[in-house]
Design a protein around this nucleic acid. Structure first.
Lengths: 180, 180
DNA sequence: TTAAAACATGTATTTATTTACATGTTTTAA
DNA sequence: TTAAAACATGTAAATAAATACATGTTTTAA
């Protein structure tokens, strides 16, 4: 689904926290922010260029080693404003995309032989995911100090954890239904 | 995110259950399937055409009233096969897109004045959503008979309900944190 | 009986996103 | 010291999706 340019705001938000390169921004989607959004560098670099043309961001050139030039981007006043306006605007809800759920929707027969394989596969995935998220939380927020310093971030991780717990208990519930 | 043509399989799945028109298919995304996927008729009509060219589906012409011609689509054997292959294939996970979560991620300060407004707005939304889903479940699955006849569909609705419950309790948790 | 809502099917344009192509530098670990 | 991994930045081509444009019919309720 072609979203309404939310990526722009994600980049603004990330740059507001810390000035960084397109490469750095792309990496963010591999770790925690990847829990709820994805983007490739091939989407990020051109967008940064357009955002700069729109005066939302600007960049400085840093040289690493002998020749390697990095473009370190940072927010302009306009970018700050644009980001804050977005924060204040009402949030639209988009349907989540989960291929497993999609498949399940079409399994009409509770006795379908596909079901048990599909479910145990999902259980494996979500158990691993939950463990990974919990480890991530412990690593990033060992004490309340870190939570206070990065409140929203901690809430988002907590949400991902709650989501996985809910997913797991839902899968368990299905298993119990099937055993009868 | 340009998905890997999952819409194709959704249409196949919907057509497998019941032969129907593009208009009918488009309407499906307004009700229950809209919980986890979206599509417009302007995406559906061309896709149906392509799927027909690929021999996954075929159509018959039905005339309504004096002049109105409807194209009623149905699966071919190839379409059946393609759909079942998809069901059996491993499911990829895509990051859910929730703009509220996205915004929250960037609120570093627990004392931000934006927070309480944002959260109460979300609470309103998710409470309404939960009530709506629960009503939908009662309407579609009043007894176990309906659940058995449409097992996957009921699971998906239950999942949406669990998701909303989880969302709500997460929001409540945040509120409690804020009150301290 | 008539106006609005719902039914029905498309196309065009723009934007978003993925995958692949393309190139070169610096750091790290064997 | 050298090879692999990570850093760094782009472009091209194809597909996916949203929004707007465009048209006409049938049903329903006032």
């Amino acid at each position: 689904m072609a979203q309404k340019n939310r990526l722009k705001y994600i980049l603004l938000g990330l740059l507001k926290e810390k000035k960084q390169t397109g490469y750095d921004l792309a990496k963010s989607f591999d770790s925690d922010i990847g829990e709820f959004w994805n983007a490739n560098h091939s989407q990020i670099y051109p967008l940064l260029k357009r955002m700069e043309q729109a005066s939302l961001i600007d960049h400085e050139l840093d040289t690493v080693g002998e020749k390697l030039e990095k473009k370190t981007y940072f927010l302009t006043a306009l970018g700050q404003q644009s980001f804050e306006d977005w924060l204040k605007s009402p949030s639209e809800m988009g349907g989540a995309h989960d291929e497993f759920i999609l498949k399940l929707y079409f399994i009409n027969d509770a006795r379908s032989p596909l079901l048990s394989t599909m479910i145990s596969e999902q259980e494996k995935y979500h158990n691993a995911k939950l463990a990974q998220l919990q480890a991530q939380f412990k690593a990033k927020f060992p004490t309340d100090k870190e939570v206070q310093a990065n409140f929203g971030h901690s809430l988002v991780l907590r949400h991902a954890i709650e989501r996985e717990k809910g997913y797991r208990s839902w899968l368990e519930e299905i298993n119990q239904t099937l055993e009868n």
